[in-house]
């Protein structure tokens, strides 16, 4: 039950309407950053206040919420956010990707393909993909307005010239609907292809920078690259030590003091489901 003294999902109705308007604008112009009047939240920046405000604005009493951090449901960050929404909205939560209607995430996209009945909410620390290349916001706004993205390709060119390949392993820049350059948030480049033509609505909230942007269902999302240096989603060339998956994104674990290492799925729900699936099939 909702605690007395709180509006449903913490934010007052006027604030939710304001954020929903920003979300609608964002959906109407895929990949374009919309400013919004971010509210102080009872969690510090860096804890996903932008994602939390987006989730709070779209949440209804029937929703089932999943929160992941680096692919896991049980990290401090994910647990706190889930507990927060249970307390202020009284909604059901789940670890199962397939059962969630809203998934708030930091740093991953679930392995299981999402559906039209789901919304993926990303926590975004820095919404501006040109942030490191062009420090002036007025100039980055102009670059976006004119789709004048040569500068981003210069950055990729520089990587190949110095290192022989594009060095960005996270937050790898994408073109949305062949119009706006967008930061996918610090997800691994491995996850970028999942954004392309995704059935679920993707919403991005940056609390500190006060920006919301979106990728509507079935929108083309293309990772920038060169014809002779095509984008490649990289994963560790191993099988998960627990479920044996050779296609999921893996985390590297140090297993003992002798420096033993193992690779396991970063998406804990996916790994869990794969462990249970053979048993279910056998029964």
């Amino acid at each position: 039950m909702t605690e007395a003294g709180y509006n449903f999902a913490y934010l007052d109705e006027a604030t939710k309407r304001m954020i929903r308007r920003a979300i609608l604008k964002a959906v109407a112009i895929p990949g374009h950053q919309i400013p919004f009047g971010a509210r102080e939240m009872p969690l510090p920046y860096g804890w996903g206040t932008g994602g939390i405000q987006v989730t709070a604005s779209i949440l209804g009493p029937q929703d089932v919420l999943k929160v992941i951090d680096q692919g896991a449901d049980d990290t401090t960050n994910a647990v706190s956010i889930r507990r927060f929404f249970t307390r202020v909205a009284g909604i059901a939560t789940t670890d199962a990707t397939g059962e969630a209607s809203i998934i708030q995430t930091r740093h991953r996209i679930p392995e299981k393909p999402l559906t039209e009945n789901q919304i993926l909410v990303y926590q975004v620390p820095q919404p501006e993909p040109l942030f490191k290349l062009e420090p002036h916001r007025a100039e980055t706004r102009r670059i976006h307005a004119l789709a004048d993205y040569g500068l981003m390709h210069v950055r990729l060119y520089e990587d190949i010239a110095r290192l022989g390949h594009i060095a960005k392993a996270y937050d790898y820049p994408v073109m949305v609907n062949e119009r706006y350059l967008m930061s996918p948030s610090p997800i691994p480049a491995f996850d970028n292809p999942k954004m392309h033509q995704m059935a679920a609505l993707q919403l991005f909230g940056a609390g500190r920078e006060k920006r919301i942007y979106a990728v509507p269902p079935y929108t083309p999302v293309r990772s920038l690259d060169f014809e002779d240096h095509p984008f490649r989603p990289i994963r560790a060339p191993h099988a998960c030590a627990i479920c044996g998956s050779r296609t999921s994104y893996l985390d590297e674990l140090i297993t003992n003091d002798a420096g033993g290492r193992a690779f396991i799925c970063s998406d804990t729900d996916y790994c869990q489901e794969r462990q249970e699936a053979p048993k279910a099939a056998a029964e």
Partner: peptide
Amino acid sequence: VSAGGNVGERLMALGARHY
């Protein structure tokens, strides 16, 4: 940005995508 990147920027701005 390197000398090559400086010269290449206008090409890339005009759509050149072959490194």
